[in-house]
Computed example of a mutant assay.
Amino acid sequence: MPKRKAERIPEDGMRINKYIAHCGVTSRRKADDLVEDGRVQVNGQTVTEHGTQIQRGDRVQVNGEAISLDAPTYFLLNKDKDTISTTDDPKGRDTVLDLLNTSENEKEGLFPVGRLDRNTTGALLLTNDGDLAHRLMHPRYEIEKVYFVRVRQNVKPDQIDRLRRGVELEDGPAAADRVAYAGSKNEIGLSLHEGRNRQVRRMMEALGHEVVHLQRTSYAGLTTEGLRRGHARRLHEHEVGALHRLVDL
């Protein structure tokens, strides 16, 4: 599948925070923090000025590790259960990177955009594009996530209304943007633009329901349709472009 071309450093240079972000290390704002903390070296010299310009041929390191403007990579994963949404797990459990059928070199630098808890399945984006990932996770852009939820008991119509109006959680009220039955009365589909920890499960628990199956069927318009559980695919060029337009890149 096509990938967005690697960005070239302009003849007059590239600001250091932009360079770090485009290498997939982190967002531009957090890149500024790395510079301030003295954790960035250019040609062997520590730099602390935000306005530092990276020139063609410069050697850049962050925390002693060399970085470069490789072509950004984008995967959509249909996450399986019992898989951790991290790049490494000290307990030795399977991570989302273990599900990618690609080389270890290509996995280097990839990270999940947001996370799904261990027993939640479905759409998860993995990339090394730091700028895009940061914006997709930022509340300002209100990225839509769509879920299929199955609970043990039937969901009453007034509870559907409560999900629309909002339920009170320990970290503040939470409401679904859209919600409807999805087959049986104990199955619903709902969409959110927030991304709080275990939000869907906690919303259902607030109504007295235990979630027995939770699947994210869509993230930022990317769906798991046709993608087997535990498998991933590269994004098409038009999908990458659509993601960038969603967050004004």
Rank of each mutant, 00 (worst) to 15 (best):
G172M: 02
P173L: 09
P173R: 13
A174P: 01
A175P: 03
D177L: 14
R178G: 09
R178N: 15
V179F: 11
V179M: 11
V179R: 11
Y181P: 04
Y181R: 03
S184E: 15
S184T: 14
S184D: 15
K185E: 15
N186Y: 06
N186I: 06
N186V: 06
N186T: 06
E187P: 02
I188E: 08
G189S: 13
L190N: 09
L190G: 08
S191W: 05
L192C: 07
H193A: 04
H193Q: 10
H193R: 11
R196T: 00
N197F: 11
R201H: 04
R201P: 01
R202L: 02
R202W: 01
M203W: 02
M204F: 12
M204G: 07
H209V: 09
E210N: 11
E210S: 11
V211A: 09
V212M: 11
V212S: 05
Q215K: 13
R216Q: 07
R216I: 04
Y219K: 05
A220F: 04
A220P: 05
G221K: 08
L222I: 01
T223K: 10
T223I: 06
T224S: 04
T224L: 06
E225C: 05
E225D: 15
L227T: 08
L227Y: 07
L227M: 09
R229Y: 05
H231D: 11
H231W: 08
A232T: 04
A232V: 04
R233Y: 05
R233H: 05
